[in-house]
Write a protein that binds this DNA or RNA. Structure first.
Lengths: 177, 177
DNA sequence: TCACTCATGTAATTGGTTACATGATTAG
DNA sequence: CTAATCATGTAACCAATTACATGAGTGA
């Protein structure tokens, strides 16, 4: 991909992982090139500005795989998890299952942290956290359900092609109100 | 609250809003003091290190309320939403409803952006986004459900004290597996 | 003609973390 | 006696955004 492509790719997933600016992407690409984790190829289709297509090298692939297989440390961001999800095709069946279990533990931990905040004695100044905690619990439950569903599918069949889908929603969800 | 208190408060909600380091908190507090948005009071209960308790001033309150009532701009972070949720007690019934509707539109937008990615023609290089998008859709649906539930409760009764609660989960959710 | 998309890049500035310094108290 | 908690603060450093520069093609 080119720097421009990367930005567009990330923009679509901006909600999940965020999208860095070009001022971050291009220097990062230059650093990867310097460390020989990627290689470049300039594509000059005229009537269009030249594009620099970056391709991962073998060194890059092993570095990437090393990162991918690093267990999710406690306190790791959602971003770290979703990034691995995006690169799931590089993961073995077992490695994916391990990843999902790691995430499950973290979300369950967060659920446990948030839960007491909603049930605190009323009248406390901490009542202000109530709505926020309730929101967090709702999100956490949904994620736990998703993870459990996937984990179950994974343990059942040996990863049947395209068997991944969670709750289908009726159309017209978009642009409510 | 003191800087230390703020950190502890944010640490419990770290999953939702993140928690800045002391190196960020103390300078921020000094800046707020300089701008007279807060005032200090040093509490020297001996046998304990002295604590600096910061209190919001009237200028600070109006600045805060102004920020709170600013509509969620397109592309606003979840953090911006949850921060407002934490300070919900400063919001009128209508302002809260407006906030929830703004968030609903944004989440629905994200849902709409993510949805086509899961149904793309198979064999595409973009298949890699499949799992991540499915994850995003699951989270988005859950949030839409939560927002709709609260919005309904809000329109029904005039905000009965403590009527906010979503799906209760059976205990033993924590530390699964 | 004006604005926008494509496409790459650099420099100034900002905002944050990490690491350090200080010092008393409490628990193992 | 050591480690951890309480409590505040500063300085070095790093990573990122913002803003800018460049330039050609496309569509209103």
């Amino acid at each position: 991909m080119s720097g421009y492509d990367i930005k567009q790719f990330l923009d679509r997933l901006v909600w999940l992982v965020g999208s860095p600016s070009f001022g971050a992407i291009y220097p990062a690409l230059h650093a990867l090139l310097r460390d020989e984790l990627v290689s470049v190829e300039t594509q000059t289709c005229d009537s269009k500005p030249p594009r620099k297509i970056y391709t991962i090298t073998e060194t890059g692939e092993s570095a990437l795989d090393e990162w991918l297989h690093q267990p999710l440390v406690s306190g790791a961001s959602t971003r770290a998890f979703v990034m691995r999800l995006i690169l799931v095709s590089r993961l073995s069946h077992d490695a994916l299952a391990a990843l999902l279990r790691q995430r499950r533990n973290q979300v369950a931990e967060q659920y446990a942290t948030l839960n007491p905040l909603t049930r605190e004695p009323s009248g406390t100044a901490d009542r202000s956290q109530y709505l926020a905690s309730d929101y967090g619990l709702a999100i956490a439950s949904a994620e736990l359900a998703w993870l459990d569903g996937l984990l179950e599918t994974l343990s059942g069949r040996p990863l049947a092609e395209g068997a991944w889908a969670s709750q289908p929603m009726t159309e017209e969800t978009g642009k409510g109100q």
